[in-house]
Write a protein that binds this DNA or RNA. Structure first.
Length: 271
DNA sequence: GGGATTGTTTAAAT
DNA sequence: GATTTAAACAATCC
């Protein structure tokens, strides 16, 4: 579930809790969280000052004093937060990163899809997933958006979800942006005229910004770094609302599988 | 109990 | 090569 607005919210909440601190030790309860292995992580990450916490695509990033980096991918149900020393470990806790103030960064993940990787300075560029990420939508120009989609015959929903085309968009915000722009999810990208593409990018930026302001969307598992639920789920217009009335025309919303994902749209308002 | 759910990778088919 | 579909991954909910 964590898409761009959720990971952005977590990064902003986490930064004041760990910047200036150091990770002092690593406890791994489930080695599957470290597909790159733990040895390099211990060598490159521990005992260095934490300088920065930020987001790239759906990755939660922690940067250390020498430029080494940690990348968390929360996938479906991953959660990252700072726990007090006396806190009882959560049932789905997978990794503890001890901090030099006695607290610990906890990574919990019910469904075990989430990952954590450590990189020596500059090493992240050699990670295919990272190197292949497309541009950030919030700072994307209409010209670059158009060229990212130029010559693509695929469906617009599939391209919005493709992290190598646009980074950070998932099922929720793709559906919401397509509704706001009046574009059906199964439209071929090449069939969307320039002005409508521009409207789609504007709608995408608008929905992502409003979701960040609301602290993200909590469907079930997502929480901020402070453990609070997001509020943007109350502002959904179409996501998860198949059969309910369209907020614009009152006709029933419809669902269709596009790009292997359930896509909800208004057959009257979206063309 | 079958189906859907979330993000990504991989394989296979078109 | 581009695109599409399906399966896989894990656990849970309805």
């Amino acid at each position: 579930m964590p898409e761009l607005p959720e990971v952005e919210t977590i990064a902003r909440g986490l930064a004041p809790l760990i910047v200036g601190r150091r990770f002092t030790d690593l406890t791994v309860l489930d080695p599957r969280v470290f597909p790159g292995g733990q040895a390099a992580f211990r060598r490159d990450i521990l005992d260095r000052e934490i300088m920065r916490v930020f987001r790239r695509a759906k990755l939660l990033m922690v940067e250390l004093a020498d430029g080494a980096r940690v990348a968390f991918h929360l996938k479906m149900t991953g959660r990252v937060y700072v726990a007090e020393p006396a806190a009882a470990p959560h049932k789905h806790l997978r990794v503890l990163l001890g901090l030099d103030n006695g607290r610990a960064l906890h990574f919990q993940d019910m469904r075990r899809f989430g990952t954590c990787r450590g990189f020596a300075p500059g090493g992240m560029e050699n990670w295919d997933f990272y190197a292949g990420l497309g541009p950030e939508p919030l700072t994307l120009s209409p010209q670059d958006f158009a060229s990212a989609l130029a010559g693509r015959s695929g469906r617009i929903k599939a391209l919005l979800l493709d992290q190598t085309v646009i980074a950070g968009v998932g099922n929720i915000y793709a559906d919401e942006a397509l509704f706001a722009a009046g574009i059906r999810p199964d439209t071929r990208a090449a069939d969307i005229p320039g002005p409508r593409l521009e409207a789609l990018l504007a709608a995408l930026k608008d929905v992502l910004c409003r979701a960040i302001q609301a602290g993200g969307s909590t469907i079930r598992d997502y929480r901020t770094a402070e453990g609070v639920e997001g509020a943007f789920q109350w502002s959904f217009k179409v996501y998860g609302k198949s059969g309910q009335p369209c907020p614009a025309c009152r006709g029933p919303l419809r669902s269709q599988t596009v790009a292997g994902r359930t896509s909800t749209y208004c057959p009257a308002c979206q063309h």
